[in-house]
C-alpha cells in the first residue's frame, strides 16, 4: 500500500462491490416491481395506489418530519397456526386417534362432529400443524389451517402481519423511519380509521391521548370567528381545555385534511404470499391454507 494507484484501486473495488450489492442489485430485484394479484384472498391488485389527497398528505408527512418519531415497519417474530376441524369424516374413532397421535389432545370420538368447524390445535408451529393435517386427512377428516402472525408489534395491534417490500412499491419518498418515539404507523389506517379522531389528535394530541408526548400541530388548523354559517368541518368534540374560546372555531386547513387522508391510507393488512395470514373473517370464508 505504498503507492497512490494501489490505495485508489482498493477503495474503488471495495466501494464498487458495496454499490453493486446495496444499490444496483436491490434496484434490479425490486425496481421494476409492479402491482400484483399477490393478495391471497382478494383477486385485486395490491397495493392500490394512494388517492390524490393521500399523496398530498405524504408531502405534509415528509415536510413536517413525522418519520423521525414514527416508523412504518411492523416486525413479526413467527407465524402461529391454528388447526380447525371442518369435517369429522365417517370414522370419528380414527380421527380421535389421529388427534391423540399428533398430541393435539384427547377428544371423545362421538362428540367430534359437533360444532364444526372447531379448533383442535392452537398456536402451533407450521410443522406440527401440517403433521396433524395430514394425519387427519388419512383418517378421512378435513381440516383447515389458520395462520396468525405473532410478535410484540403485532400483539400491540400495530399490524396484522409484518410489512414487506410489496407494501411500498407505489410510493415515492418511502419513509420507513428509524426511531419509535410514538407508535408504528404502517397500519394506522386500519387501526384508527376515525377521521375526526385523527384531526383532533393532530390539533391537540393530549385531548384524545392522555400524557401523549407528541407535539401539537396547530399550524395545520385555522382558528376563526364562527360567523353566521359555522364551518361544517370545524373540530367538534374538543374537550374544554383544548377548545377555542366561545365564538371561535377550529377548522382544519387542506394540509391537515391531506395528512389525515394519508394516515388513513396507511394499511398493510392484506394477506400476501410472502406474509400470509388468515384474516378474521366469518368462519365460512375461504382460508389461505396451503394447497395440499
Amino acid at each position: 500500500m505504498r503507492y497512490g494507484p494501489i490505495v485508489f484501486l482498493a477503495a474503488f473495488l471495495t466501494l464498487s462491490a458495496s454499490w453493486c450489492g446495496f444499490v444496483l442489485t436491490p434496484q434490479i430485484q425490486l425496481g421494476r416491481a409492479v402491482q400484483e394479484t399477490n393478495s391471497v384472498v382478494k383477486a385485486e391488485l395490491y397495493p392500490q395506489g394512494r388517492p390524490g389527497l393521500a399523496r398530498a398528505g405524504l408531502e405534509v408527512y415528509r415536510a413536517d418530519g413525522c418519520f423521525y418519531c414514527h416508523s412504518q415497519q411492523v416486525d413479526q417474530k413467527k407465524t402461529l397456526v391454528d388447526v380447525f376441524l371442518t369435517d369429522a369424516g365417517k370414522t370419528p374413532t380414527a380421527v380421535a386417534q389421529a388427534l391423540e397421535d399428533a398430541h393435539a389432545g384427547t377428544f371423545s370420538a362421538p362428540g367430534l362432529a359437533a360444532g364444526l368447524p372447531k379448533p383442535v390445535l392452537r398456536n402451533a408451529t407450521m410443522e406440527s400443524a401440517s403433521v396433524l393435517a395430514s394425519l387427519l386427512k388419512k383418517a378421512g377428516a378435513t381440516a383447515e389451517l389458520h395462520l396468525a402472525p405473532a410478535g410484540p408489534d403485532i400483539e400491540r395491534g400495530w399490524g396484522a402481519r409484518r410489512t414487506v417490500a410489496q407494501d411500498f412499491i407505489s410510493d415515492s419518498t418511502v419513509m420507513l423511519g428509524s426511531q419509535r418515539v410514538g407508535p408504528d404507523l404502517a397500519n394506522v389506517g386500519a387501526r384508527l380509521p376515525d377521521e375526526n379522531w385523527q384531526l383532533m389528535h393532530l390539533y391537540a394530541p393530549r385531548s384524545v391521548t392522555k400524557d401523549s408526548p407528541m407535539p401539537s400541530y396547530p399550524f395545520l388548523f385555522e382558528r376563526r370567528k364562527t360567523g353566521q354559517h359555522p364551518a361544517p368541518d370545524a373540530l367538534q368534540q374538543l374537550p374544554k381545555e383544548f377548545a377555542p374560546p366561545a365564538g371561535y372555531e377550529i377548522v382544519p386547513k387542506p394540509e391537515a385534511r391531506a395528512l389525515v387522508a394519508y394516515l388513513l391510507s396507511l394499511r398493510s393488512d392484506t394477506p400476501l404470499y410472502e406474509a400470509p395470514l388468515t384474516p378474521p373473517a366469518p368462519p365460512a370464508a375461504a382460508t389461505n391454507a396451503p394447497a395440499k
Binding site: S18, W19, F22, V23, P26, Q27, L30, G31, A33, A165, F168, I169, S170, D171, S172, T173, V174, L176
Partner: peptide, 24 residues
C-alpha cells in the same frame, strides 16, 4: 452523488429501494 441522484432526480427510484439506498 449516487444517493442524491437516485433519490432526488427527476424520476427517482421507487419503493423500499429508496430506503435501502438511504441506509447504504
Amino acid at each position: 452523488f449516487t444517493a442524491n441522484y437516485l433519490l432526488l432526480a427527476h424520476t427517482p427510484i421507487r419503493g423500499v429501494t429508496q430506503a435501502i439506498v438511504d441506509w447504504w
